[in-house]
Write a protein that binds this DNA or RNA. Structure first.
Lengths: 124, 124
DNA sequence: CTAAAACCTGACGTTGACGTCAGAGGCAAG
DNA sequence: CTTGCCTCTGACGTCAACGTCAGGTTTTAG
């Protein structure tokens, strides 16, 4: 498949795919005229990359970790990086959960004040 | 207290505090010579701002939501923004949790392969 | 055959939350 | 008084993951 189709299927932009290649995250075969051609598995790979970006990993870190995600093998150093990212994500989840709970409390208080008539109705 | 002390107590940089003021997130009294002076409550306020930044809110959004976090009151529009951020954070937590689980699986596989002797010991 | 759509490389633009530097005051201690 | 630390404003620098534009080639639909 060519780059446009991959972009659509993976839900990213064409520019993003070229950027991933530039970062070494996504290889591509080239047709004689130079157009990129991807196997079907590229869709999953791109979505995995997206997932890792969303989790706050940098291109460089993803580059380090992608191989072992596929092979299941890792050097001790890579294993350390894996554990580091895992615990970072864990901490982030804890922080986000606390923030969410705080927003919940604010929402509850605000809704109560609306119910109490503290805010004039929009129809006024 | 002056800006340096607040920065230390809140765990942020002096530059960040000036930036918050620039964004309207943090007021300050001024001494006759122009130096900023903060009340004790500013520490909590700064930490709250930090927490919201960490949850992915922009300066603008924090500016919109900070008043109602303190007053417990909100217009219907602000309430909508609150709910929007809450659900966004919820989705982010879900995504992060999935990613963490994936990393756990990778770590388990990698540790198993190390245990199996697939990776030469560092002492080699 | 031709026009549209998709693709190519290269390179500058964007955004947000600050970092950092320059140059000029202000403030308690000795 | 002056030494040294803190603070001020103003302004440019940073970094990462792309967005966007320019100018040209390739593929596809009719």
């Amino acid at each position: 498949m060519r780059i446009g189709e991959l972009a659509t299927k993976a839900g990213v932009s064409v520019r993003a795919l070229r950027y991933y290649e530039e970062q070494g995250l996504l290889g591509a075969d080239r047709s004689p005229s130079g157009q990129r051609h991807y196997p079907d598995g590229a869709v999953d790979r791109v979505m995995l990359v997206q997932q890792l970006y969303a989790a706050g990993l940098s291109s460089r870190r993803i580059l380090d970790l992608l191989p072992c995600v596929y092979t299941g093998h890792a050097t001790p150093e890579t294993l350390r990086l894996l554990a580091e990212e895992r615990s970072r994500i864990d901490a982030q989840v804890a922080g986000l959960t606390a923030t969410r709970d705080r927003l919940d409390a604010v929402i509850a208080a605000a809704e109560a004040s609306v119910t109490d008539g503290c805010v004039p109705p929009a129809t006024a």
